[in-house]
Design a protein around this nucleic acid. Structure first.
Lengths: 231, 231
DNA sequence: ACCTGAACACCGTTCAAGT
DNA sequence: ACCTGAACACCGTTCAAGT
């Protein structure tokens, strides 16, 4: 018994800064770091393995696959969303709801590549639950029925996420092509397009976004009650 | 002048079935075929090059990049959408609008992998213009103002596309995890989640979809007029 | 147990060189 | 001009083997 030293894993001290043991949290932290510095495109198993000074196979002990990793990253980023509009009773509920959603959307805009994956990969982490809870609180405050609120939350989050995802593509070529196609629409085959050309292309910015939120909220209030099939 | 034969490119007849000359249309057709048989995941430059009996570099003469290829495939598939509800005056406009959108959505459901890319890559092809035109016609018939219709079309298409994209992920693991997280929400930290648990998870099918369409249409009718900034 | 080297089967895109 | 072989710089995931 020559191992009297209580500090764990003494081993041979290397030049490297200690190489902390692998863990899910460590992997996700590294992933967030790579996301912030280089975008989601670089958040790959192989890249992270290099970052953590190991081989890609090692990560599969803690993460099921790349999609799950991205979901974990998203949940981490969700911590940045400002949920205070749901807590502090300042101002009208619709306006506070819009502020909260805008905060969510701004986070995704800061990491546009993440929005795409956010549409298909639903996180299951604590921060995601916090966000949904906050939205439900605000909708309830607005007198929205439970069934409407439950489905409405999905609609609102999906809209914000899709909005960010569209922006993420940001292929100026592709968008230009679409605009040109609309602008040069033949009045014979596409009379409405030709007539509305300007309006269709106009306003890609904040105005459209807040109109979208207002429209969704109005719809949630005005639409028929969802058919609640009790489980 | 020994080339009296009017048939072009006689060359040396090979075993291969003639190897038609490369063209953008041919590439897109091959891409659609691979999509139908193996999904968008296999619609890659390299795979298509193999399919067309050439090297991947050759495709770049006709297609800017992979995203543009996917957009072209989407526009091709858009031809499957049933636009008749916009032409035949049978039934209420809202109901016809929903039928048209459902047809669009069903197409994406048949090719779920395409929906994801449809969110970020806007097609500029003729079929896409046909679809937008049809939606505009129906909204106009419903007395929706031009500005509302212009922005509303985007909202409706985005909802349908995002719905299909979510379904596309189809990672049963990821969804199960989210459901479990909601079901086991702590009443202390997430009272609304705990209270509404059942309702939140309930109804992933057709009911939710048609509620979504109804909600959006109601919102478009009820929301404030968009601030039309004339170009 | 926990970890990993090496392998398998792929990618997008570019560019110098061929016809 | 139009086309392409070969190269560059990557991927996700698995599995047999090591400690």
């Amino acid at each position: 018994m020559n191992s009297a030293d209580p500090t764990r894993t003494p081993r041979s001290r290397r030049e490297r800064p200690a190489k902390p043991a692998l863990s899910r949290a460590g992997i996700v932290a590294a992933a967030v770091h790579v996301l912030r510095t280089e975008g989601l495109g670089k958040v790959t198993m192989r890249r992270l393995a290099r970052e953590l000074d190991t081989g890609p196979a090692s990560l599969y002990v803690y993460v099921r696959n790349t999609d799950e990793l991205h979901a974990a990253v998203l949940d981490e980023l969700l911590a940045e969303v400002d949920l205070s509009p749901a807590r502090e009773p300042g101002g009208e509920w619709r306006e506070r709801l819009t502020r909260l959603l805008t905060s969510y959307l701004e986070m995704l805009f800061r990491h546009p590549s993440l929005a795409r994956s956010a549409l298909t990969v639903h996180p299951a982490g604590a921060h995601y639950l916090d966000l949904v809870e906050a939205l439900l609180v605000l909708l309830r405050e607005g007198g929205v029925s439970d069934a409407r609120a439950a489905w409405g939350v999905d609609l609102l989050l999906q809209y914000a996420t899709a909005m960010a995802a569209e922006h993420a593509g940001d292929h100026p070529d592709s968008l230009d092509d679409t605009f040109t196609a609309i602008a040069t629409a033949s009045p014979a085959r596409h009379p409405e397009l030709a007539r509305l050309g300007d309006v269709l292309v106009a306003g890609g910015g904040a105005g459209r976004l807040s109109w979208g939120f207002a429209t969704l909220i109005a719809g949630i209030e005005a639409a028929p009650e969802p058919p609640v099939t009790g489980a």
